[in-house]
Write a protein that binds this DNA or RNA. Sequence first.
DNA 1: TGTTCATTTGTAGTCATTACAAAATTACTT
DNA 2: AAGTAATTTTGTAATGACTACAAATGAACA
Lengths: 144, 144
Amino acid sequence: MICNHYNFVKMDKIGAYLSKHEIKPSLQRLKIFEFLYNNKNHPTVDSIYTALSPAIPTLSKTTVYNTLKLFISKGIIRSIHIEDHEVRYDADTIPHGHFKCIGCGGLFDFPFDHHLQLQTNLAGFQITEEHFYLKGYCKLCGAN
Amino acid sequence: MICNHYNFVKMDKIGAYLSKHEIKPSLQRLKIFEFLYNNKNHPTVDSIYTALSPAIPTLSKTTVYNTLKLFISKGIIRSIHIEDHEVRYDADTIPHGHFKCIGCGGLFDFPFDHHLQLQTNLAGFQITEEHFYLKGYCKLCGAN
DNA sequence: TGTTCATTTGTAGTCATTACAAAATTACTT
DNA sequence: AAGTAATTTTGTAATGACTACAAATGAACA
C-alpha cells in the first residue's frame, strides 16, 4: 500500500460513524464496513461475502449488495470500476488514485492532487466525483 | 464536445488505418470503426448495433463485441468504464479525460495533462494506461 | 472450380447483479 | 411483557450483458 488516509475514524467507533451518516448499525453493516476498512486492497462483493460468511453464517450475498449500495448512497464508500468484470469497493472517501497491476492483479492506492488538472476548459461544469486510475506493472511484476 | 483529437486520421482512409494496425478491413469493421470515429459521444455496444443494423441488416451483436475486442487488442480504441452497467468505447487514443453528466447522461471529453500527477510516489511502477474521469452536472443540467 | 482460411452469425450458456416477497429482527406502544 | 408496526435480512427467481462454440458465409488463391 502506498498511501493511507484511514486515520480519520477509529475501529471501535464504526457504529457511531454509521449512525452519523444515517445508517442504522446492524451487525451485518458493522461487519461489512469493518472489513472494507481493514482491507485496503479494495475487495469485491465476492471476497467480502466469502470472508464474512464464517463469522455470519446466515449472511446472504444480496445483503452484501444491498449494504454496499446503501453505503455508497450515504457517501461513506465509493465503488471502483477499472476492469469490466469486477467492481471493487473503497472505504476511503478522500480523493486518491488507484494503480491496477496487470501482472499480479493487485490494486494500489496513491495520492494525487486533484486540483492540478482542473485548469481545463470545464468552466460551468459542477464536479461531484473524481476518479483517476492507472494500469501497468507494479514494482515486483515489472522486474522481469 | 470540449476537445477533439480526431484530426490525425481522415474519414476516407479508415481501411488503410485498419490495415496499418494489422486488421483486415471487412465491411463490418470499417463501419464499426467509422461509427465510433464519427460519434464522439462514446457509444455503447448496443447503440453501435442499433445504429448499424439498418445499413448492415445481417449484423450480429456478437460481431460488434468481437470487433471491439479486436480493436482494443490492436490499440486503436479504448474502453471506458464509468458506470458499472455500461461500457463505452472511444476511438481517440490520445490521453484525455471524460466527464459524465449525472443529469443528462452525456459523456464529454476534456484535455488534461497526464504528466502533472506523476510526481507521486509511484517510483518503480510501469504505467501503461491512464484513465481520468469526473462526474457531475454539465453546463445545461447544472443550471437548475 | 475447388480448397483453405478468416470472418460473421445465431444459439446456448455463464455469471454478476437485481427484483421481489417471505422470514427474521428491531423498535415502539400500551 | 405482549402485540403491532417498521426495518432489515434472506433465498429464489429473473434479468441482462457478455462469451463460447460451431455452423454458415465470404474471401483468397492455386
